[in-house]
């Protein structure tokens, strides 16, 4: 069984410290929820895990089964089994969904693959793509479109889940995958995730909402405040936060709350 372990993680963005010592352990097969007010550092954690070049790890480490991945390129992390579902998926003009996925899959399934080496066989790929798309209720025609170009918010999020389904990571981080979706779309995404997240996948769901968690009961709920995880509980903590907001968390952790950067709205 694989373990994703984050210890004392400090991350800065353009010199500003955002994460100030995050500790988190996720076993394969577990579902964790990460909640917290805007600006608390949830997305920063997601980007730092995936290896975005603007997110500088100044201290601490991220390990998969004892391998420190915090110095690795994003593609190497992906090949070790890490996946990030983006809050704002990027448009890649002129690159067809199917071509993109076939390249991605070939690299993740065959981590030693070099540029230009052969891709997974077309027939095998097509079959799997067809199966996964129909499971997610996606029109096959979508595979011929350019990645995320002209996609609606719901289509983009569904495309992230399709990629998750095709790449079968050991650890998946979902950054606000439920934001900006109507309730039907949340349902599709949630059901898709619950079908995929079995014993083989550890999942970190970053969310403001409870809806994604209804279908994906977390064993652990973490609350982030001002760049630290200040509380960890079970699914009932997520429900409580959803109902009552973060004021009680702030009251319980006045020192950390004092460090919060108040965003101008």
């Amino acid at each position: 069984m694989s373990l994703l372990k984050i210890s004392d993680l400090h991350v800065s963005v353009t010199g500003t410290p955002i994460l100030k010592g995050v500790n988190l352990e996720i076993n394969q097969g577990e579902v964790h929820a990460l909640m917290g007010p805007n600006g608390s550092g949830k997305s920063t954690l997601a980007y730092a895990m995936a290896g975005h070049p603007s997110y500088e790890i100044t201290k601490g480490k991220i390990e998969i089964d004892g391998t420190n991945i915090s110095e690795l390129d994003p593609n190497e992390r992906a090949r070790l089994g890490l996946f990030l579902a983006f809050q704002y998926p990027v448009v890649i003009p002129g690159v067809k969904v199917a071509d993109f996925l076939r390249h991605a899959m070939s690299n993740v399934r065959n981590p030693d693959r070099k540029e230009g080496e052969k891709l997974i066989p077309m027939r095998e790929f097509r079959k799997e793509l067809r199966d996964q798309m129909s499971e997610l209720g996606m029109d096959l025609e979508m595979a011929r479109r350019y990645l995320n170009e002209g996609f609606s918010g719901g289509e983009k999020k569904r495309m992230e889940i399709l990629q998750l389904a095709m790449l079968k990571p050991k650890f998946a981080v979902l950054d606000e995958t439920d934001s900006g979706l109507d309730s039907d779309a949340v349902k599709v995404v949630s059901e898709g995730l619950s079908r995929l997240a079995g014993a083989e996948m550890g999942v970190l769901i970053i969310t403001h909402h409870e809806r994604l968690l209804e279908f994906n009961q977390p064993q652990f709920t973490h609350v982030m405040l001002a760049g630290r995880i200040v509380e960890t509980g079970d699914a009932s903590l997520a429900a409580e936060l959803h109902e009552h907001g973060y004021s009680s968390v702030r009251e319980r952790h006045p020192d950390v709350a004092a460090e919060e950067v108040v965003e101008a709205v």
């Binding site: 995936a50 290896g51 975005h52 070049p53 390129d73 994003p74 593609n75 992390r77 992906a78 090949r79 996946f83 990030l84 983006f86 998926p89 990027v90 448009v91 890649i92 993109f100 390249h103 991605a104 899959m105 690299n107 993740v108 981590p111 540029e115 990629q163 790449l167």
Partner: peptide, 11 residues
């Protein structure tokens, strides 16, 4: 765009 591709295992 590069980061997005790389996060999917692409060099």
């Amino acid at each position: 765009q590069i980061f997005y591709c790389m996060s999917r295992g692409i060099s």
